[in-house]
Nucleic acid binder design. Structure first.
Length: 422
RNA sequence: GGAGAGGUGGCCGAGUGGUUGAAGGCAGCCGCCUGCUAAGCGGUUGUGGGGCUUAAAACCUCACCGGGGGUUCGAAUCCCCCCCUCUCCGCCA
């Protein structure tokens, strides 16, 4: 969410951001209402001032044991006038708040303007492997080796779910543990294990609501949402808090199961693990002081890259263009790993800087040492990878002609030293 | 789910209808003092909106005592609904 005054004073920038991101907000209506509101509030506050002054007089009269019946009668009229204006303001606020909540964050100047074709490949690492045979897609390998069981999953839950079986399940668990260990033992992230259900306030704070309500699973009786990404519970960990400067940067890592309805994406990535309703992630979140957030974005990105490098998976880093940026993000890098079986670059992580957009919604502030007052923190997050697509890449990249799959060395300690799935 | 207690500023904690934005303490900041440190003394320090200002500060003003409604000329204080925390009971992994 952007600051009301900022929007008013930078209407052009905001309008451009809305256009560049392709968001649908009636911005003219917003500006109009904002003006109306200011007028009405001004009038209301004038009346209230008058009212407050009179109240003091009444209080004084009463205290002195004098009669104040006349003043009280006058106040009745004023009081009801104020209530009318209050009601008017309430109506305006409802619409205004809704409009403001739909205004996206402003892209950083370094972000290319445009749609997916404007995405910039910043760098790549490793080379897609050359095969002397025709590489198979992961669902075939997974079935042959008994790692992935989509039939069972659909029996249990439905289409677009997976059941990992045997060493497949073990590989999944190994990946999670590996990523958590790297993040917590080597990179200084604090591990947390948050609830997988979150409430509306939390979803609003990180920007999933109101826009993405249809994309999430919702438990209607309790009005709770199944976690769509670890970013939500972790970022909300400090909601409504004032942090001390010396606590920053705060770095968290968490394993979470993630749930997405993927409404509207039927027909895309329909096979295998590419797009499923429930998946696992280890998420990294940082709370930082504003002036350091772009440096922190780079180190966050390299923390995520490091995981891929250790797994030996060729990838590229893509700076997303404005249209591809999420609602709350100011800048975002996608990490795409090459999956030879499906011959696609797969997004396994994205590192984003939200600047103070989420912090304003979540009201997470910092008190600077030696200064009065508080300011908003900046929040960032990245995945230390989403497992399904990482599993896809591992299985497809490390497949052998004999049908077996070599386990990346980094994962072997987590698989009892096993070197190969066969 | 039932019964009870409670939610006040960065923190602790007073306050049951009228100068209470809120006593007191802690922490912070600015001075003073003490040969250092600790202590002591005085002052000061909330957030958000609007106005004024080229801008900021200052200043004026409105709101904010878990959230939302209501009663009243006037609510942190009274009433209603909701959320959260704690204790006991019940139920259950």
């Amino acid at each position: 969410m952007l600051e009301v005054r900022f929007i008013r004073e930078n209407a052009d920038r905001v309008r451009k951001a809305i256009q560049d991101k392709g968001e649908a907000v009636d911005f003219d209506r917003y500006l109009e209402l904002d003006g109306v509101r200011r007028e009405v509030v001004g009038e209301r506050d004038r009346l209230r001032h008058e009212h407050n002054t009179a109240s003091e007089t009444i209080a004084r009269l009463k205290r002195d044991g004098q009669d104040a019946a006349g003043q009280i009668a006058d106040m009745k009229a004023l009081s009801s006038q104020i209530k009318e204006l209050d009601q008017k303001i309430r109506t305006i606020d409802t619409e205004l708040t809704e409009l403001r909540a739909a205004i996206p964050n402003i892209p950083h100047p370094s972000v290319p303007v445009g749609d997916v074709t404007a995405n910039e490949v910043v760098r790549d690492w490793g080379k897609p492997r050359e095969f002397s045979f025709s590489p198979l897609p992961h669902w075939e390998i997974g079935k042959t080796l008994g790692l992935l069981d989509f039939e069972a999953a659909s029996k249990i839950a439905g289409a677009h779910f997976v059941l990992y079986r045997g060493l497949g399940a073990r590989l999944e668990r190994a990946l999670i543990n590996f990523m958590l260990d790297v993040s917590t033992k080597e990179k200084g992230y604090t591990e947390v294990f948050p609830p997988f259900l979150t409430n509306r306030e939390a979803m609003f704070a990180t920007g999933q609501l109101p826009k993405l309500e249809e994309d999430m699973y919702r438990c209607e009786v309790d009005d709770l949402f199944l976690n769509p990404t670890g970013e939500v519970p972790i970022t909300n960990l400090h909601r409504e808090e004032v942090l001390r400067e010396d606590q920053l940067p705060l770095k968290y890592a968490a394993y979470t199961a993630c749930f997405r309805r993927e409404a509207g994406s039927y027909g895309r990535d329909t096979r295998g693990l590419l797009r499923i309703h429930q998946f696992n992630k280890v998420e990294l979140v940082k709370f930082v002081v504003s002036e350091s957030s772009y440096e922190e974005l780079e180190t966050l990105l390299s923390d995520a890259e490091d995981v891929l490098q250790r797994l030996g998976l060729p990838y590229r880093v893509v700076c997303l263009a404005t249209r591809e940026l999420s609602f709350a993000a100011a800048k975002c890098y996608d990490l795409e790993v090459w999956a030879p079986g499906v011959a696609q670059w797969l997004e396994v992580s994205s590192a984003s800087n939200f600047e103070d957009f989420q912090a304003r919604r979540a009201n997470v502030r910092v008190r600077r040492s030696g200064k009065t007052g508080t300011e908003l923190v900046h929040t960032l997050n990245a995945s230390a990878l989403a497992t399904p697509r990482t599993v896809v890449a591992i299985i497809e990249h490390y497949q052998q002609e004999d049908g077996s799959v070599v386990i990346p060395e980094a994962l072997r300690p987590y698989m009892d030293g096993l070197e190969r799935l066969r």
